[in-house]
Amino acid sequence: MDSKPLYFGKIVFAVYYKNPFGVVLFMAKVEVTKELIAKVAKNARLNLTDAELERFVPQIKEIIVDSFSKLDEIDAKEEPSFQPVAISNRMRKDEVKKGITQEEALKNASAKLRENGYFKGPKVMK
């Protein structure tokens, strides 16, 4: 993606997203299609309208192809960083601490989603 200068008023508003080769020399290995995005959205329990799909597909494709897939350029044999600083062995003793009461637990649930001390939820059988 080349530099894209946008002129607004007196300030030059230039956004560079620099591709080191100047031009896209490689093709990202993934094919980002409408079907793929619809499938991923469904997995994440998002119902996308046709309009949303139309809008999202080019946006998401751009991000995956022009940004995410840049990582294909380099080799990385390093260990993955779980956190950016080294932390390990955080555990606690097996002791019970006073929790919250049933009423406190239910407090944030709407009146419709409570019943006799239980939370109410949607059914599991189709």
Partner: peptide, 30 residues
């Protein structure tokens, strides 16, 4: 650190096992 024995429903919970936003897990060494 919620108790593992309880009878009354939803009486042995806390923001962590209720999945409340902002809560954080800490591993039990036992």
């Amino acid at each position: 650190a919620c108790a593992t024995d309880s009878t009354l429903p939803n009486s042995s919970c806390c923001p962590i096992c209720l999945g409340h936003p902002g809560s954080k897990p800490v591993l039990n060494e036992k």
